[in-house]
């Protein structure tokens, strides 16, 4: 195998794409794209949907999908907002405000975990296909959020709330720090823990996982709980950046999160995906959309370019025999008892 062939992995290609996009944008609009102002604004912008992409990625690694992440994010944010507005009140300052912010974070995480548990039970115990289970539950979470708020935005947080989405930590935007910590954490989880290894093995072949005495129910449930909690964190960031919580924030993020994950090389049929790939995909998209912004290209062109990028990467992957063959699910066997004697 030549060096070129080895280098042709999805992640390597993505790294090249990310660098090329960055350099191209820097050349096309050097003073504006490379300005501190633009770089910071990028760092504030992408973490919210990047965290949602992490949530989707974890579910997709098991061969499932989580379409309810945005619903969970908004519902968690609304519960957190209720605490911040009704209990803490907009006037809260100092340690009081910090305490309530922490409490609202905790509440959001609990909501995310419970919502994820609900998904996990639907999928692992009742056997619903993940796409339908999370589509339905997503509607329910959004619906509850609508019913709680009547559909209007909740505003009036203590000023400290803004720190989460707009603050700096040692000069680095807080959302970026949050995303970096989460990405590193999930990356560690996937590669260094038994749970992570089981997720990938289950995603590769759920049946074989069962036959290898992996506790598949527990793995699946924990995956969706994790996904729900990540969504809740994203919800908090969105809430803080918007300085409000609303049932229908970020509805376009569902497919965007899936798109980023797939672009990042995560196999939608499960079993393969690296966090570094997702990170690179997020960066490529952010560089691209920011750069295009500088070049006065309409906001909507971003979507066009994201979609083209996705299909382009898929074609390249399939041509190099990377994307498709890896993912082909085993054909349904009409005769479960037959022996597999294919003489070749």
């Amino acid at each position: 195998m030549s060096i070129a062939a080895r280098f042709a992995g999805t992640e390597a290609r993505l790294a090249v794409i990310a660098v090329v996009v960055f350099v191209a944008m820097a050349l096309l609009s050097p003073d504006r794209f490379l300005s501190v102002q633009n770089l910071t604004s990028m760092a504030f912008q992408f973490p919210e949907f990047a965290i949602l992409a992490l949530a989707t990625t974890v579910a997709m690694l098991t061969g499932g999908i989580d379409l309810s992440v945005v619903g969970i994010a908004n519902l968690s944010a609304i519960i957190a907002a209720t605490i911040l507005i009704q209990i803490a009140g907009p006037a809260a300052v100092g340690p009081d405000a910090v305490l309530w912010l922490a409490a609202s974070m905790a509440a959001a995480l609990v909501v995310g975990a419970v919502a994820g548990l609900f998904n996990g039970i639907l999928i692992a115990v009742l056997g619903l296909p993940a796409i339908l289970a999370t589509l339905g539950s997503g509607l329910i979470f959004t619906g509850i959020a609508v019913a709680l708020t009547g559909g209007s935005a909740m505003m009036g947080f203590p000023a400290a709330t803004a720190w989460l989405g707009n603050g700096l930590l040692f000069g680095v935007p807080v959302p970026l720090v949050l995303f970096a910590v989460l990405a590193l954490g999930i990356g560690f989880l996937l590669t260094r823990t038994g749970f992570g290894l089981k997720i990938q093995m289950f995603g590769t072949n759920p049946l074989a996982a069962r036959f290898a005495a992996v506790n598949v129910t527990s793995v699946l449930i924990r995956v969706y709980v994790l996904s729900g909690m990540l969504a809740a964190i994203a919800g908090m960031v969105i809430m803080s950046r918007a300085n409000s919580a609303k049932a229908d924030y970020g509805s376009s993020y569902i497919l965007l999160a899936v798109l980023i994950a797939v672009l990042g090389g995560v196999n939608p049929y499960g079993g393969y995906g690296k966090i570094i790939g997702v990170v690179l995909a997020v960066l490529s998209m952010q560089f691209l959309s920011s750069g295009l912004n500088m070049l006065q290209v309409s906001n909507f062109a971003r979507e066009l370019i994201w979609g083209s990028l996705l299909i382009f990467v898929m074609i390249v992957n399939s041509k190099t025999g990377f994307g498709m063959r890896r993912g082909k699910p085993a054909p349904a066997r009409p005769r479960p008892e037959q022996s597999s004697g294919s003489g070749r």
């Binding site: 290894l197 990938q200 590769t204 074989a208 393969y272 022996s339």
Partner: peptide, 21 residues
């Protein structure tokens, strides 16, 4: 019996296929 669908994680490494146990 059916090694390909029940026994193995085909696209995973040989090491992982053993190590999962």
């Amino acid at each position: 019996e059916d090694r390909l669908t029940e026994g193995l994680f085909l696209t995973q490494s040989i090491l992982r296929n053993v190590g999962i146990g």
